[in-house]
Nucleic acid binder design. Structure first.
Length: 510
RNA sequence: GGUCCGUUCGUCUAGGGGUUAGGACACCAGAUUUUCAUUCUGGCAACACGGGUUCGAUUCCCGUACGGACUACCA
């Protein structure tokens, strides 16, 4: 394979959508697999849609998920600048070339005139396009005399430059994911290449830049598929047919239920993030919570995203980035859109979170507790993390599940209280409390021994009172191993909690 | 409407002319855990439909249906 050079080319019009992250990821995986280069190109040719902060956001988001950029606006590189607004004169040059070669023309039609043309065509049942049939009725350098055109331009009349698409020719391209795609030029209209503000449109800019930046593979979303033949045509007209990159159009990320592409609205409705990081809309001031802030680990998100539309063909599910790079192949990307299933993302997160050490998990707990004004020694935090590690999906679960070690219960699970708080459990807990009160060193072993002794003495099966004991100790119906919980709490705390439970719950029972 | 693209369990998907159509998530059940969770075992559950081609089609071809994308001086 020739030198692999891929690009991720977002438009700084807002936060980076999770689908964009996946597109960037696939580009990145291919680049790394072939020791190629990953290029970040900012497509900011629409000045009206520019959103301050968006570019920085995109870079921060890529950095967070671990996608490294080899060439880009900050990094620089042999084909700088990497911001399209800074490459304006380059596009003008190639537009001029197309004009000279008769592959493009000036058009002076106003928005109203275009609108009128479309309405007229619509009424007659013809597909409304600015094409070989309609352009002869419009105001452009094909219908106007050379003098008229020159006069208009000299007078400063606004104009655009359009591609002169042939009347009827088959354009073919071989998509790496979908195979051969063939379209007749009669279905393509004379797309605007240069806008009246002097900026290029995407169609010109992406072709010119991909060529100049020696891009080997264009990996982008399926929404570009319909205009891909137009781009192929542009490469041909520019004389770059032989250097044309390979195309791979990715299937879309779909909403979890129903149909259609995943939108922020869906995500909001179903209660999951759609942006990698927190994003505050500069216009509305509205904050959208990111995957990072929700507690998703970048490696989990990457693993999850990689599998949305691609799979290695083996039964392995958990992949490090290095493994993904090794296994990745464009040919194994699926064709159909993939519904976004947040439950699967949660599962990946759980897997990655669990694989962390007690120390890492414990530090997470310490940080969380500190923000609530609670101090916790390292050793205790590590022990709590160890007890909780099998039950957490998000880092914040450690603190929320671990709070039982720092706060005595004030209320008790009602279901357990009504079902399990009876003479037997009261008897056992009373006796256990007295037993533990006598010891000063409470460990898993001594706690177990105490419980066994008490239940044996009273002739009550332990299983019958475990839930009552847990409720008395923590207020809840579930939690980490009870003996571990008691050991972590210590003798005096256990005694006082059991006493409190016995006092408050007794009244309720009678 | 037109053009293009797509369609295997609820979801992500493997597979491929002859398979008990495999895995994962979710869900359900049992076991273990003296409790809940974990873990383990098992279960539920899919080739959109109709025509071909073929000895044989879920797999190849053609239609149909359904779905999606695109159809801007936005990307």
């Amino acid at each position: 394979m020739k030198d692999v050079r891929v690009r991720f080319a977002p438009s700084p019009t807002g936060a980076l959508h999770i689908g964009g992250v996946r597109t960037a990821l696939y580009n990145y995986l291919l680049a790394r697999k072939h020791q190629g280069k990953m290029i970040l190109r900012i497509e900011d040719t629409d000045q009206n849609r520019y959103v301050p902060g968006a570019e920085v956001y995109i870079k921060d988001a890529l950095k967070w998920v671990g996608i490294e950029i080899d060439e880009g606006p900050d990094k620089g590189g042999p084909h700088a600048p990497y911001r399209q607004s800074e490459r304006k004169n380059i596009y003008t040059k190639y537009a001029q070339q197309l004009l000279n070669d008769g592959h493009a023309y000036y058009a002076f039609d106003s928005a109203e005139e275009l609108e009128a043309m479309r309405n007229r065509l619509m009424k007659t049942g013809v597909n409304p396009q600015y094409d070989s049939a309609t352009r002869i009725e419009m105001k452009n350098s094909l219908t106007l005399s050379e003098d008229e055109v020159n006069n208009k331009i000299r007078a400063g009349a606004p104009y655009v430059i359009r591609l002169k698409v042939p009347k009827s020719e088959q354009v073919e391209l071989n998509d790496l994911i979908r195979g051969k795609i063939s379209v007749n030029t009669s279905q393509i209209d004379d797309k605007v290449l240069m806008k009246s503000d002097g900026m290029p449109t995407y169609h010109l800019a992406n072709v010119v830049d991909d060529y100049l930046m020696k891009i080997s593979h264009v990996i982008r979303g399926e929404e570009w598929l319909p205009s891909a033949p137009l781009h192929v045509l542009t490469y041909k007209f520019l004389g770059w047919e032989n250097e044309m990159p390979a195309f791979a159009h990715l299937p879309l990320l779909l909403k979890p239920d129903g149909k259609g592409k995943l939108s922020k609205r869906d995500a909001d409705q179903m209660g999951f993030p759609i942006f990698p990081l927190n994003w505050t809309d500069p216009h509305t001031g509205e904050l959208a919570e990111g995957f990072r802030e929700r507690g998703y680990l970048p490696e989990a998100l990457i693993n999850f995203l990689a599998f949305l539309g691609w799979n290695p063909g083996t039964e392995q599910e958990l992949f490090t980035v290095e493994e993904l790079i090794e296994a990745f192949e464009i040919e194994r990307i699926g064709k159909a859109g993939a519904k976004f299933d947040i439950q699967k993302a949660n599962w990946f997160n759980q897997q990655y979170l669990r694989s962390k050490t007690d120390e890492e998990l414990g530090q997470l707990l310490i940080t969380d507790l500190k923000s609530q004004g609670i101090d916790c020694e390292n050793e205790k935090a590590y022990a709590i993390a160890n007890a909780l590690r099998e039950r957490i999906t998000f880092p914040s679960d450690i603190a929320s599940l671990g709070k039982i070690f720092f706060f005595a219960p004030k209320s008790f699970d009602e279901k357990i209280a009504s079902k399990k708080w009876n003479n037997e459990s009261i008897a056992v807990i009373t006796a256990l409390k007295d037993e533990i009160n006598k010891t000063n060193e409470l460990t898993v072993d001594t706690a177990t021994t105490a419980l066994v002794d008490v239940t044996n003495r009273l002739g009550i099966a332990q299983g019958k009172i475990m839930q009552a004991l847990r409720m008395a100790l923590t207020g809840g119906a579930s939690g980490p191993d009870l003996m571990v919980t008691m050991a972590l709490l210590g003798a005096s705390e256990v005694t006082s909690r059991l006493t409190y439970a016995l006092n408050t719950l007794e009244e309720k029972a009678s």
